[in-house]
Amino acid sequence: MTGKKRKRIKIGDVYAIPLPNGKYAFGRIFKDAGIGIYKYIGVSIDDIPRVEEYQFIVGVYEYVLKSGVWTFVKYRPFKSDDEAFPPPSCIVDNISGEFSIYHKGEIRSATKLECEGLEVAAVWADNHIIDRIMGVDKWHKDDEK
């Protein structure tokens, strides 16, 4: 099915992500609007990852997957329903400074320590995901000022 347009986005779909250097990253669709970006970078759209190892897993806007810029290449079903959920992510309330953890559609109170090392809950646009794949982390640089 390489290169075919997908009418409906399914959990387990793998998309090829064209990169500015002419190579391809790949992302697999998780539940809760998540996408796991594979560690593997391919030299062509058909050079897909062979193992399920991810650089990061974040939320992705639906328009990114429906735009046709990222191409559906393969369906890889998850072994279990539980495996199809992205890992827990952290929510920080900008006003109160309180921490929460979001996982499997539920939000619970948490401590700063519990949130250490977790991805911040957010939905990402395609350009930001590509920046992160390419090693650009300009969104963190502002935090250091």
Rank of each mutant, 00 (worst) to 15 (best):
Y38L: 00
G97W: 05
W139K: 05
A16E: 11
S100E: 15
A25R: 05
D46N: 15
A25C: 05
Y40F: 14
K141H: 10
A122C: 07
C115F: 03
D142Q: 12
I45W: 07
F72N: 11
C115M: 11
R28H: 04
K138I: 05
D126K: 06
P88V: 03
T2N: 15
G3F: 01
E119I: 13
Y54A: 00
G135D: 12
A84E: 04
E116R: 12
A122V: 02
G68M: 04
N21G: 05
A121M: 14
E116H: 04
M134I: 06
M1W: 11
I107K: 12
S80H: 12
D46A: 09
I107H: 03
G27M: 10
W139Q: 06
R108W: 00
I91N: 14
T2H: 03
G59W: 11
R8I: 15
G97K: 06
P77A: 01
K104I: 00
P49F: 03
P88T: 03
G59Y: 14
A33I: 10
M134K: 05
Y15L: 01
K10P: 02
P86G: 03
L19G: 11
W70I: 10
L113W: 12
G34A: 04
D13Q: 13
L65C: 08
P49S: 07
K4V: 09
D13H: 10
V58D: 09
A16S: 12
H140V: 07
G34S: 09
V51I: 14
I129M: 09
V92S: 02
K79F: 06
W139T: 10
N127V: 03
D47Y: 03
P87Q: 06
C90Q: 13
P49Y: 06
N21L: 03
I48Y: 02
G3D: 04
H103T: 07
R8P: 04
I9N: 12
Y63N: 12
L113Y: 15
E83C: 04
E144G: 00
K5P: 03
P86S: 12
E52T: 06
L19M: 09
N127D: 02
K23P: 01
V73M: 05
R132N: 10
K39Y: 02
I129C: 01
I107Y: 02
I95C: 07
E62Q: 04
H140W: 07
Y54N: 01
I17G: 01
V120Y: 07
G27W: 02
G12P: 14
G27E: 10
I91T: 08
N127W: 13
V136P: 02
V136S: 13
I91C: 03
F26Y: 11
F56G: 02
Y63P: 02
A25H: 12
W124Q: 05
D137R: 09
